[in-house]
């Protein structure tokens, strides 16, 4: 679990709608960030809708971070996102990625 915050990571604001149709662009965005090699710092304050495909993208991104020794953090998670992680059985993992302000 990559938990240490990489200060040089740029913050990426997650969109309001994380639905099926958003999964592809979310992947592209995160891939581009990962290419920078400075870890992922995601701001989830705006997230109002969540779908499993987008959660998969996030979890996959986290896996990739681990594999490439980058940091992965989600800050300001909206309740919707917290609930979705919880419902899917990702509570424990999520706790490790989450930064609470």
């Amino acid at each position: 679990m990559t938990n240490s915050q990489d200060t040089s990571a740029r913050e990426v604001k997650l969109p309001r709608e994380l639905d099926l149709l958003a999964a592809e662009s979310l992947k592209e965005t995160l891939l581009a960030e990962l290419d920078e090699g400075e870890g992922l710092l995601l701001d989830a304050s705006d997230v109002e809708r969540v779908s499993t495909p987008c959660i998969e993208v996030l979890v996959s991104a986290q896996k990739t971070c681990v594999a490439t020794s980058q940091s992965f953090q989600i800050s300001n998670s909206s309740q919707v996102l917290v609930d979705a992680f919880s419902a899917l059985g990702l509570d424990e993992q999520f706790k490790g990625w989450r930064t609470i302000q």
Binding site: A23, E24, L34, P53, V57, S60, K63, A67, L88, L90
Partner: peptide, 30 residues
Amino acid sequence: MELGEITTTIDTERLPELAKLEPEDAYFSW
């Protein structure tokens, strides 16, 4: 969850790294 008390265990093993992920495919299982 509406039906009663539920314990959920997720398996994310099948999930590939981001570059190989097909965003609209399903990888999780429970």
